[in-house]
């Protein structure tokens, strides 16, 4: 039982970490970043580079955040900016961007699986169960990301501008807010968070050019059901991630892998606003 509770919590944390970047972009810009998976991969390889140039492991996610953020901002300025009026085309263009990025990563780092020594290893005894310490650390990281993001949105000028753009873009422009800049920063932050997620999950997964892809569908579905709201995302991760863990444990992991996608799809059909406004 202790194991199951920890599985649920840590699964939810991993889902939250890997979807937060997508959510921020969707929430502010109302476009879906299909390059999300590629940015997770970028983060994984940024962590590898950080390791190679001798940065301490604690700084690897920060380094990934910066690399992903800069690349994301460039992508916004070159590609995404032209597609705000065509949100479905933005899906396709970011998908293409993801293909290009994956190929470039492959060309630079090779196709094989790379390996990074884990920053934290070993187990810890919680709730009467021996459990992976790193997974438990990730729960804290997820909470940290949520708090930092909430503070950014509520306590800073940038956050204020961003909320204004979310609520009413033309009015915000009328008030002198540079909405193009808000979008640039948002896309950068979203991609940066995706990359940071990549760096954070590398100790649990492999490091290869396709490493981000498995997280894509889950992230899409979770963001869709949370309708762009961060607290709703947290709730969705907990509920759907929990369901996934329960189905995996008691029924089988293959069905467990489909839980999030199927449940989210059906939930949205029955209740189009999803977990938002609960």
């Amino acid at each position: 039982m202790g194991n199951l509770i920890l599985d649920i919590l840590t699964t939810a944390a991993i889902l939250f970490i890997t979807s937060a970047g997508l959510l921020i972009i969707f929430g502010v810009m109302k476009i879906i970043n299909f390059a999300h998976a590629a940015f997770i991969t970028v983060g994984g390889f940024a962590a590898l580079v950080a390791h190679q140039i001798g940065l301490p492991p604690l700084l690897a996610p920060i380094f990934a955040l910066i690399v992903g953020g800069v690349l994301g901002a460039i992508a916004e300025a070159v590609i995404v900016r032209r597609l705000y009026e065509r949100p479905l085309d933005a899906i396709l263009a970011t998908w293409g961007l993801g293909l290009i990025m994956t190929q470039l990563i492959t060309a630079s780092f090779g196709r094989g699986v790379q390996f990074l020594p884990p920053p934290i290893s070993g187990t810890v005894s919680v709730l009467g169960a021996e459990y992976s310490l790193y997974r438990i650390v990730l729960v804290g990281v997820a909470i940290l990301i949520a708090l930092a993001f909430t503070a950014l949105m509520t306590r800073t000028r940038l956050g204020l501008s961003t909320r204004a753009v979310i609520m009413n873009e033309s009015l915000a422009q009328g008030l002198g807010i540079n909405s193009a800049r808000v979008r640039l920063i948002t896309f950068g932050v979203g991609c940066g968070l995706a990359a940071a997620a990549g760096a954070l999950i590398t100790p649990l997964t492999s490091l290869d050019p396709a490493m981000g892809l498995p997280f894509l569908i889950g992230a899409f579905m979770l963001v869709m059901v949370s309708g762009g709201s961060l607290p709703a995302l947290a709730l969705a991760c907990l509920v759907l991630g929990g369901l996934q863990a329960i189905v995996s444990t008691y029924v089988g992991s293959v069905l467990g892998g489909l839980t999030i996608a199927v449940c989210a799809a059906v939930a949205l059909r029955i209740r189009p606003e999803g977990f938002a406004r609960v």
Binding site: I217, F220, M221, L258, A261, P272
Partner: peptide, 23 residues
């Protein structure tokens, strides 16, 4: 039936179309 109902978001229909082949 799952994808199209009055007021459905086009994103939603696209995401469902993504889930279908995966399932």
């Amino acid at each position: 039936w799952l994808s199209f109902y009055p007021g459905a978001s086009p994103f939603y229909a696209t995401i469902i179309s993504l889930v279908l082949p995966i399932v």
